[in-house]
Amino acid sequence: MTTYYTKDHEYIRVEGDTGTVGISDYAQSQLGDVVFVELPAVGKTLTKGAEAAVVESVKAASEVYAPVSGEVIAVNSAIEETPATVNEDPLGDGWFLKIRLSNAGELQELMTEEQYEDYLKTIS
């Protein structure tokens, strides 16, 4: 089980050919209080970099992009009811969706956790 990150602060935690997608702790802290999450339909096919979900804070709406290509196989409906979970536990209960990877090679274009930590140092 490995977690990868994008420059837009999504993460994907990969187990076999599926991955759990959400936003990083840095992303939730930058957004502030999350008040609304819009999730895709299960079965939707996403291409890497396409809009996968929308997350809204008190101040603004932000897109969540698909870190890799694949089919949405599950969404976390609980965060539609209690969006604050995204702030409280972004890497755990605050996940957005699960995706079945169509091209595992795309993971090589993402950052590892260590690379992401270094990346955060360059932007803050």
Binding site: V35, A60, P83
Partner: peptide, 10 residues
């Protein structure tokens, strides 16, 4: 305006 549901209209 009071929108239905939770989605903010900005």
């Amino acid at each position: 305006l009071q929108p239905e549901g939770r989605m903010p209209a900005r």
